[in-house]
Amino acid sequence: MAPMAVRSRTSRGPGRVRNYGPAYAGPAGIWLTVFFVAPLLVIVAYSFMAKGLYGGVEPRFSLEAYRSLANSVFLRVSMNTLGISLVTTVLAILIALPCGYYMARSNRKTLLLMLVIIPFWTNFLIRIYAWIAILGNNGFLNALLLRAGIVAAPVQFLYNQVAVTIVLVYTYLPYAILPLYSTIEKFDFSLLEAARDLGCTRRGAIFRVLLPNIRAGIITAVLFVFIPTFGAYAVPLLVGGKESYMLGNFVAEELTRTRNWPLASAISMVITLVTTLGLWLMFRLQGKAPQAKDPARSGGERRAP
């Protein structure tokens, strides 16, 4: 939008400035077209085709894939996925909020920020295996409980929805903490004192003043956690059981074992659709935030001194 404005303003003048904006966006545009838009279109196309005999697709139009979605197994897995994603998102935000608040008020911000980022230095799969080592029957937690005499036999922590949720929350927590931290960091904490001064309790000040003002950060955090969780594959595969089967696993199974590519594509389409819906919903919420209504603040979150 900005380059357009520049062009329309300058084109009237005598010393017309050529606008190279689109050219600058070129490399990224080509990259995204080749590796994102094109594959997506292939998936859309596959979902409307017939199943090939030995995998692959037969190039003719068919609604068979979408028709076969209308069964109780798919519905149950969908609900399961939605449930796990929502719970994970809520938990991650609830943990990330006080965390981000503390980080923003600390005078060792860089150190704390490093601590949040350090887990990314280790491979994602290795971190999941680390959780297996902690939660497994011969794992660290059970060993601790047994030695303390709290339980007589190892507790089955792994291979259920709880384990999947725990590991998902763990995995995506930094994605919730970082946007929350960055908005809370810009928050003017004297507003909390003003709220207290005007009669708010400590809790009241958080709910009436802090949360409304960091809304943009909360929305970003929700999206950053919900979207990847809804398409999760590795976590439910490694620490989940039958009950925690998610759509991502469904896709993988149709793709590799059942070899029903149109069905796998159709399920992918459902995942894309739901996450897009979530995105749209959140953007609408953000649009309702008072900041966005205000022209003086549309430039960003900066506050006049």
Partner: peptide
């Protein structure tokens, strides 16, 4: 008494108006 229970109100240096209201 906590600040919210004192019969005292403050005009802050940076005004501390609530930007969302």
């Amino acid at each position: 008494l906590p600040p919210n229970e004192r019969h005292v109100n403050t005009v802050f240096q940076n005004y501390a108006l609530f930007p969302h209201l």
